[in-house]
Design a protein around this nucleic acid. Structure first.
Lengths: 333, 333
DNA sequence: CTGTTAGCGCCTTCAG
DNA sequence: CTGAAGGCGCTAACAG
């Protein structure tokens, strides 16, 4: 591997001069600049970012910790993060935790070791000693989608309560009274907030949430599938179903289909998270859409401000969800 | 930040000793081991991977260059890569090129600078000077999904010709003669191979591919949408449509739906790439499924063998696709 | 404008 | 079994 030392020899200058032309720091005469340039071209030199980072204490790398890359919600978010990161010259180390606390903890440690300039996290659970320690040790951390029970954290996410309320209110308006929920896990903020939105919306309408009709899932497809089955097997089957995320919705739709029931005649459905095929489903699915790409963008922008020590007036960005009414809910009397 | 120097002072030993206990290299007396261990615990020490890598010339980081993270095909592949990488202690730097050659080139350079131990690439085009140079400079590169026109490259991908033939043969069997294709770009291997499979299948059946019925797209949804429109507007509308990837299929389905046509009565459709909602579509969509997760696993396993200098008997792994017949094609007479 | 030099934090001979 | 010292490749004073 060529080093600046080699270049210095080739161009017959000092390493400092080489460094200067590489970094365009300080003046170097045209002649020397040319010679160094030539040496670089001839050797195919590439600066060693490790050495540079060791010296400058900047890696231009950020860690991205999320639960599941294969979930389209996250990939869209990642896309937003990547676009902004690229624009500002940062690279992403991608860490998939699978909602596994151990894995999260290990990744946190590895990323700290790799001296990332910052981190974007979608934490596996609301309270984690690992993250608390991270917060103490690392100055640049932003949360995304989900947050953690600590004061003063910086975070970009969606208004889950509002989104869920929009969905439930819509169902209520259509005349539904027996609205079931397949909720996410209650130890992550997005899960608990959507559940709270559900409860709140019902109560505001003077309805009491039924234990029978509330199922707590894991945000996984199998979970949506299984819980939907339980709901469908109930003596008093709900007239409407709200599912708290995209992949559980797929599971639920599969279960409904398997039972030979039809939407919305037998049961109305609205899912949290829009999906690009929602309009192609049978029938087209009514959903609560999150601005996923934008969430990624905002998170990365927050992180960049934080890394640049700029003032952040709004520590918590709350994006607005949107109800996309299609044909999966019917009016009942 | 705590360094081994600090630890050495705290434990009243030399840095060499600290290094030895951290890396479990060489014998250290129990007493000193204990003292060092305590110092580590008290200080919350974390080794600086930058410094270590600079010294050892190993980063335990690999670069992953793909076209589009938001495409479920790639995310499933990434998932496979990540799982294996994690198992072996490697981290992933994720690079999204957007099929953009400039971006790819820049990323290649950055990754080289960051001294990644290896690279997995899904190249934007078949022939690229940037990649040729990389191959010359970096010993550990494996291609995934798509490859590049160079001899001896290591690669994990699917048998695109076979997959496409399966789809076309199926349509042929159902009696279709006017089978259109929305192909991918012809400057990437997966695009051209699927196109070739289409042509070959037709010719073997004694049919001549019609220019009118072959549309060359970009693997993007808009492209599928627009080209499907063109096909549908033809005087002699094809009786069947093969779409060469997942997101173009979504576009095509959208166009068909918009025209008020029904599948399979007005037109039969089969798409390359299965999708988890394919069975929920209206009607359930017949597809050619790729073993995406497995592809990622194989690619990473190949890379690991390569990095470990193990012998690789099979440089090119060709995975088998599978036709999933559902309800989007009808028999015609 | 250019060169010399001292580290960044770590690993690894080489002595002891 | 332990310590001292050199160097990985680079940047940034500090001299000149």
């Amino acid at each position: 591997m060529t080093t600046i030392k080699d270049l210095a020899k080739m161009a017959n200058v000092s390493v400092a001069t080489v460094s200067r032309v590489i970094n365009k720091s300080g003046y170097v005469s045209p002649e020397l600049t040319r010679r160094v340039g030539q040496a670089i071209a001839e050797s195919g030199y590439q600066v060693n970012a490790l050495a540079r980072s060791l010296k400058t204490a900047k890696t231009h790398t950020i860690g991205l910790i999320i639960a599941d890359i294969s979930n389209p919600f996250f990939t869209s978010v990642i896309r937003g993060v990547e676009d902004i990161a690229y624009k500002h010259g940062y690279n992403l180390i991608l860490c998939n935790t699978d909602e596994n606390l151990e894995k999260e903890k290990l990744y946190l440690q590895v990323l700290r070791g790799k001296m990332v300039d910052g981190l974007i996290i979608s934490p596996a659970v609301t309270k984690s000693e690992g993250i608390r320690e991270l917060l103490r040790r690392h100055p640049n951390v932003v949360f995304m989608d989900r947050k953690v029970e600590e004061p003063e954290v910086i975070c970009a996410r969606v208004d889950n309560v509002k989104g869920t309320k929009m969905a439930i209110d819509y169902l209520l308006q259509l005349g539904h009274k027996d609205i079931a929920i397949i909720s996410g896990p209650l130890n992550v903020t997005s899960g608990v907030e959507r559940y709270q939105g559900y409860v709140a919306a019902l109560k505001e309408a003077g309805l009491e949430p039924r234990l029978q009709h509330t199922k707590i899932g894991t945000f996984r497809q199998e979970s949506g599938y299984k819980l939907a089955q339980e709901l469908l097997d109930l003596e008093r089957r709900p007239s409407a179903l709200f599912v708290a995320n995209n992949v559980m919705t797929i599971g639920a739709l599969l279960a409904i289909r398997e039972r030979g029931l039809s939407i919305p005649d037998d049961i109305s459905v609205v899912g949290f998270d829009d999906m690009d095929w929602a309009v192609l489903a049978n029938p087209p699915l009514t959903t609560v859409a999150q601005p996923t790409y934008e969430m990624g963008v905002k998170a990365m922008e927050l992180l960049i401000r934080q890394m640049h020590k700029e003032k952040i007036d709004q520590k918590e960005i709350l994006l607005s969800p949107e109800l996309r009414v299609r044909e999966s809910c019917k009016k009942i009397s």
